[in-house]
Design a protein around this nucleic acid. Structure first.
Length: 812
RNA sequence: GGACCCGUGGUGGAAUGGUUAACACGUCUGCCUUACACGCAGAAGACUGAGCGUUCGAUUCGCUCCGGGUCCACCA
């Protein structure tokens, strides 16, 4: 007999993880054409160095699915990748090593990232996640760059990607473009100035008249870049006026237009639109197709501002205010509390600056993207609304270029003379234009300028379904694994990862990238707030694992309620999970002892099943059916809950007590008792082994450890078994009244023993039951259980309208 | 400000257009019953955020309000 572990602890989990790896249980077989393929486009986590609870939750979810599908006969393809590039890594590396030349810096970034991966991979493995590591990918690898660059070239060829001049967040201090994530919002006090403009209006006589108008601004120094004056379309003051144009305080004629984004209640209700004060100005610029005036240079010094050229913002503002005051154009100045964006690293205010960037055409593809998204199944269904809202809202195209070092180089050259863009050849990929020999323009032979920008990290990650399916590399592999069967991911990146992936993969292959999406929410701290370093409420998975084990954490994840909802981490829930596993182990010990030497033989054993056996098998069948429907909708908590309730509070609390007397029967007990024993053994065996299989995807280590009592050889594994399906032969609805009555009587017996402060095994001399006619007819089939499990010597039943149980203890 | 999600016993959280609204943790009372005291048996504890409406009937459907959360936007 194989002895079970004394405890289901960390050491056992590691033992099994190693065993599964050695036995290659997670291997996808690309040559197997008999089993259907199930491919999972797993999220590549950003290589920060540590997994957090959000990772643990979401990775548990799709590991459940992967294991479940394997047990259902699928050829599961479950690769795991890493999202390596981006600003946070650059920041960390720069902090550690200081500024370095680009090539050396890149090397340090790679080194740092590799060390992060080493740790995170070990964490994933220790959670029992069943990825096939032979297909691991890293977005910083040349092979990955090659695919990204190929996708970019193809989209450039189909005119989905273009180069254009566009305002971006710019730090004049660091002279660098920034992503929104590189910015912080700070509050500060400033002045808002009312300044006199003029309107040229057609009056009633058809003549042109001048009319004063007041605009309010906090940025008068940008007035030289003012390209329009805007008012709200319902503004009574202007909606019926025939305005030719507005004239700024600098005497420049600009259009006067209605726009719903103008707040009629703020300031003077009229706003000057400059290129550029803030993001709203950019929105207006595109919406009204306004010309662009470059307001300042890279260092934040004014341009195109006449006598103010070369001045810094602050100096220019002071000078201009003086000038307007002198000219009588400054009507008033009031204090204003405002929020401004600053660069998170240097703390300086950010400007919008015009620069040449690369873009992808998402605005003209809204409908197409939404249609592709709708062709997939979303769990839960409301999550698709995040994507639809975003698609409808997006104002301008996706800026895919970043001025960074640690990223995928954009594979382009540019001719300074004829303005031609020259893409790299597909056969030379991957390329790094700035570090390659000079090349000449095919049209004018001028030496081309290499593109120095890198790709936005979402450009990398938005082709993950193509990368894992060996797109453009292995057609056979691709056909089997693309589209991915499942895309699991966090709800917070629907607008980025899901959106960009659907857009790009659909453009590149003509096929939507996934069959189904499974959305998960975030894990909050026990206090209900977001986990954050500053609040000091972070729960580290490592620590949790040392205290509770991977299976308890996985069980907690499975029970963590509905999809795509945030939920606080709860120690009481994980404590329950741990207790359950303990129960599973102890019941396993009893079952193992009970079935010692038993060889299953359904035919002969089922013939001697007692009604109570059939009742519990029937209940098992109901649980299996519940599990089947729950898996269809990825409702892990429903499936797990049903199994746990049945196992603990029906099977353990009742059935095990009912059958103890039968399994204690020995050779001398007679043929009938032995037949009954074998029927009990059959039932114990069936129920317990089924529960282990039901739970195997959720608690792989514990299930495997306990499965060993049924193992026929050293290679046997619960994960190689077929997942339980309902078995109509076990249905026995006719046993239900007896099963319920027995539980009711036993509960009453226990209650009376408790009330009398007697141990549960204390004997009852005489038990008198008051039962209805229906109950009386069920009684004979369970009389034996009442007597044996209740310790009842003499059992008497009378007909009664009211259920009653009277226990007489007899002489002590 | 916009979109979406949520508001159920002390805590965390299921479920349902209709008899006493799961379950877990915690609390209280017993019980060391040869699998388990990380256990067993009991018990207490909820007018299901507030108000309207639909309905024979709502905690479940609709509206309004209050409160919480997430994402997005944010003010010239």
């Amino acid at each position: 007999m194989i002895s079970l572990a004394d405890r289901l602890d960390f050491a056992n989990e590691q033992k099994w993880q190693k065993a599964w790896q050695d036995r290659r249980l997670y291997d996808y077989d690309p040559n197997d054409t008999t089993r259907p393929v199930y491919s999972i486009d797993t999220p590549p986590p950003f290589t920060s160095g540590d997994l957090h609870m959000g990772h643990v939750l979401s990775y548990s979810y799709f590991d459940f699915v992967a294991r479940y599908k394997r047990m259902n006969g699928f050829n599961v393809y479950y690769p795991q990748g890493w999202d390596c590039q981006g600003f946070p890594t650059e920041t960390k590396v720069e902090k550690k090593y200081g500024r370095k030349p680009p090539e050396e810096f890149r090397k340090l970034c790679v080194e740092w990232t590799e060390s992060c991966i080493l740790n995170m991979r070990a964490q994933m493995q220790s959670m029992g996640f069943s990825a096939d590591w032979r297909y691991e990918y890293k977005t910083m690898e040349p092979s990955y760059h090659k695919k990204v660059q190929r996708s970019v070239l193809m989209m450039h060829k189909s005119d989905q990607i273009y180069r254009g001049e566009h305002p971006v967040f710019w730090c004049p201090h660091c002279r660098s473009a920034l992503a929104k994530t590189d910015t912080d919002d700070i509050e500060r006090d400033t002045q808002i100035h009312d300044i006199k403009f003029q309107l040229e209006v057609d009056d009633v006589k058809g003549k042109t008249a001048l009319q004063h108008i007041t605009i309010a601004t906090t940025r008068p120094e940008l007035m030289h870049a003012c390209v329009a004056v805007l008012y709200h379309p319902s503004d009574e003051r202007y909606k019926n006026l025939k305005v030719k144009h507005a004239i700024t305080a600098l005497g420049v004629k600009v259009p006067f237009k209605p726009d719903a984004d103008v707040d009629p209640a703020f300031g003077s209700g009229v706003v000057m639109c400059c290129t550029f004060g803030d993001k709203q100005d950019v929105v207006w610029m595109y919406r009204h197709k306004l010309p662009i005036i470059r307001a300042m240079d890279d260092a934040g010094k004014l341009l195109n501002a006449g006598e103010l050229n070369g001045l810094k913002v602050k100096e220019a503002r002071e000078k201009l205010i003086e000038k307007f005051k002198a000219e009588g154009k400054l009507l008033s100045s009031k204090p204003l509390h405002q929020v401004v964006k600053v660069h998170d690293r240097c703390g300086n205010a950010i400007e919008m600056a015009l620069s040449w960037q690369w873009f992808a055409r998402i605005t003209q593809n809204r409908e197409k993207i939404v249609a592709a998204a709708r062709s997939m199944k979303w769990h839960p269904s409301f999550a698709i609304s995040y994507l639809e809202d975003w698609a409808n809202y997006v104002e301008w195209d996706w800026v895919i270029s970043r001025q960074r070092v640690f990223g995928t180089p954009l594979p382009f050259w540019h001719c300074p003379k004829c303005d031609k863009t020259v893409p790299a050849q597909e056969k030379e990929l991957p390329v790094d234009p700035p570090h390659m020999p000079a090349r000449a323009c095919p049209t004018c032979s001028t030496q081309l300028l290499p593109e120095t920008s890198t790709c936005d990290v979402w450009v990398d990650s938005s082709i993950s379904p193509l990368v894992i399916s060996k797109w453009g590399e292995d057609e056979k592999f691709f056909k089997r694994t693309y589209p991915a069967s499942l895309r699991p991911q966090g709800v917070e990146i629907v607008r980025t990862w899901a959106f960009y992936t659907i857009y790009r993969c659909n453009e590149l292959t003509g096929k939507p990238p996934f069959g189904e999406l499974l959305l998960n929410g975030n894990v909050l701290a026990p206090d209900g707030k977001k986990m954050s370093k500053s609040l000091g409420n972070i729960i580290a998975p490592d620590k949790l694992q040392a205290d509770y084990g991977a299976d308890a954490i996985r069980l907690w994840a499975a029970l963590s309620g509905a999809m795509a909802k945030d939920r606080p981490f709860s120690y009481q829930d994980i404590q329950y999970s741990k207790s359950f596993l303990h129960k599973l182990l102890n019941a396993g010990k009893l079952v193992q002892k009970a079935i010692e030497g038993y060889v299953p033989s359904a035919a002969s054993d089922t013939a001697h099943l007692r009604p109570i056996d059939r009742y519990f098998l029937s209940r098992l069948n109901e649980v299996v059916a519940e599990s089947e429907s729950a898996w269809q909708e990825y409702e892990f908590h429903r499936m797990t809950k049903a199994t746990q309730e049945y196992f603990w509070h029906e099977f353990c609390d009742y059935y095990l007590e009912y059958v103890k007397y039968r399994i204690y029967a020995s050779e001398t007990s007679g043929a009938q008792a032995l037949a009954s024993k074998r029927a009990a053994q059959f039932t114990l065996y069936t129920i317990y082994s089924t529960v282990l299989r039901l739970l195997a995807p959720i608690t792989p280590h514990s299930s495997e450890e306990l499965w060993q009592m049924f193992a026929t050889n050293a290679q046997d594994s619960v994960h190689l078994q077929i997942y339980p399906t309902s078995y109509s032969k076990f249905d026995a609805p006719e046993t239900k009244p007896a099963g319920l009555l027995l539980a009711k009587v036993m509960a009453e017996i226990r209650q009376q023993k408790a009330a009398a402060k007697k141990p549960l095994n204390s004997p009852i001399a005489r038990l008198e039951l008051g039962l209805t006619q229906d109950e009386l007819s069920s009684l004979p089939s369970i009389e034996e259980e009442i007597k044996m499990a209740g310790g009842v010597n003499e059992l008497v039943a009378n007909k009664s309208n009211e259920f009653s149980v009277l226990a007489e203890w007899g002489a002590a």
